[in-house]
Computed example of a mutant assay.
Amino acid sequence: MQEIIESSIDNDLAPVILFIYNRPHHAKKTLAALSQNLLADKSVLYVFADGPKENATDEDLSLIMQAREVVSEKQWCKEVILVAREKNMNLEDNIIDGITSVINKYGKAIMLDDDLISSPYFLQYCNEGLQVYQNNKQIFSINSYMFPIDFETGPETFLCPVATSSTGWATWADRWNLFENSPAYINEIDADSFLQNRFNVGLMNKMYMLKHMHTWDIRWYYTAFIRNGLGVFTTKSLIFNIGFDGSGTHKGGEDLVQELYAEPIPVFYQDSINLKHYSKLLNFVKPDPISLKQKIKNIVKRLINYKSV
């Protein structure tokens, strides 16, 4: 774990952690939006830049250096600390190590990726959420992204069993340090349809991700799931993802309609799940019968092709 320099800023705001690699244009847009946040001029920003892979081309090396140079272009926040990896750690390890290094110094942190445009009130919302729910150990994450769902209410927050998100979020050290790096109950969840239904969230198919992808965010979700954790969500999204252009490590979401809410969303303490909002979220991501039919056709097609080889 690389040693992290502690910021000299003395305030109760959570540090912001940004992860970059080889997308300088995305990183610049993310930093520009972050700099327009209400509390940016009072916040410390840690930027973790992953290093080049062993087989990196000259073009790869150039893009990696350009992304790092973007960080030094302006004073995006009150203080900016760049942690430049000499070698490639891969996406998962860079994120896990980066969060752990910073959050254990400050007790809390706000996380961003290099393809996320934030509302001017993103930092305010995350900091308020961290303060309001800091003593409720059942809350694992303050989440700022939301699908374009009509919740039939004004902008507000709600508690949800989905618990975690990897798209503009915040948490505390005591919850992050519960991180399950090697999930022990994969087989138990996989073997029980009721547990699977509870673990999955519609089209997200989190069980598949847990079994086959082993990404940091599905392990974080699993960490909250086995502890019956909850997450704080907004009815309006304070994050807009510009990474659905095929440039990132993980693909998908190109056809998703997104909205960015540019007004404050206050955080008030709640002690129960909002079942109306939770139901709307589940119905938004429920499996589409047409999509399932197409998936079955694709499986049959692959089997036919396999047998013909």
Results as ranks from 00 to 15, higher is better:
264 P>N: 08
276 K>Q: 13
238 L>C: 10
270 Q>G: 00
269 Y>T: 01
279 S>R: 13
276 K>M: 10
279 S>K: 14
279 S>L: 07
232 V>D: 01
273 I>Q: 02
282 L>N: 12
280 K>S: 07
278 Y>F: 14
280 K>Y: 09
252 G>M: 08
248 G>Q: 14
240 F>S: 10
239 I>G: 04
251 K>Y: 05
260 L>H: 07
264 P>L: 11
246 G>Q: 05
237 S>L: 12
266 P>W: 03
250 H>A: 08
263 E>I: 00
229 G>I: 07
252 G>F: 11
250 H>Y: 15
263 E>V: 00
273 I>A: 09
272 S>Q: 13
235 T>N: 06
244 F>E: 00
232 V>E: 00
240 F>G: 01
237 S>Q: 09
260 L>V: 05
281 L>V: 09
264 P>F: 09
234 T>D: 11
235 T>L: 09
270 Q>N: 08
281 L>R: 06
232 V>Q: 03
255 D>P: 01
248 G>D: 10
258 Q>S: 03
234 T>I: 07
268 F>L: 14
236 K>C: 08
235 T>V: 04
268 F>Q: 13
231 G>Q: 08
243 G>E: 07
234 T>M: 03
268 F>V: 14
248 G>M: 15
264 P>I: 05
273 I>C: 08
249 T>C: 01
243 G>A: 05
239 I>M: 04
273 I>K: 07
249 T>V: 15
228 N>M: 09
258 Q>V: 02
228 N>V: 05
237 S>H: 10
234 T>G: 07
277 H>W: 08
237 S>D: 09
